[in-house]
Amino acid sequence: MTQNGSLLLVDGVTARYGSTIAVRDVTLRVDAGEVVAILGANGAGKSTTLKTIVGLLRASDGRIVFNGKDITKLPPERIVRRGVTLVPEGRQVFGGLTVEENLRMGAGMAPTATFLDRRAQMLELFPVLSTKLDVFAGLLSGGEQQQLAIARALMSDPTLLLLDEPSLGLAPIIVERVFELIEELRSRGTTLMLAEQNVEKALQVADRAYVFSTGRVELEGPADELREHAGVEEAYLGLGVRDSA
């Protein structure tokens, strides 16, 4: 296993978009069974961090260790097959494919039997999808697409699920449902890391959280403590982190 037994360890990772540094020297960890939240304003580096973990972006510095193995340089398809997957920002379901086909994609190249098995589990978890299997995903509502995106990600049976802004652009009622889902997943033993702008809901469901600001981790700590901490607001408004007296 890794040192201190973490499921995922991100160690001093820097990632760029072209020549601009998006995240700098980020260190964080996720332990098995946890729900960890990454918070911060728009552009703070939350999405970038998740994308770098899953391999969509190249880390120019630092390393990422998952389940004891170094995955820093691996391409996304190999990382996903090792058990980390990402529900991307904005859902990004395959609009031209049906719900069923989206789920099939989620299972990757897995054999049909496995696919059918997992699909049955997903339909249990997301009953609203079971009636829409032949509908083109592009025609679903925002909330349905979000559920499909999560279901699709779960089809690969991940050990660690990353969610990028799952509540973005969704009505409050749907947001409730999404976070209920996250709770449900957590109770089933999936380890989760989510990037969120909705601080309140995120801290409700998370065990620990990291707060990002302009590409760096500014704060970290247990969720309940961070809820009290004034610094979280400061990081959001970019006013600087104040040491508590």
């Binding site: 969509l56 996304p76 398809e77 996903v80 494919l97």
Partner: peptide, 16 residues
Amino acid sequence: RAASENFAVTRLMGIR
């Protein structure tokens, strides 16, 4: 078909 729509996300499915 998935790749023609969204290449990056297709890779996220574990598909090369």
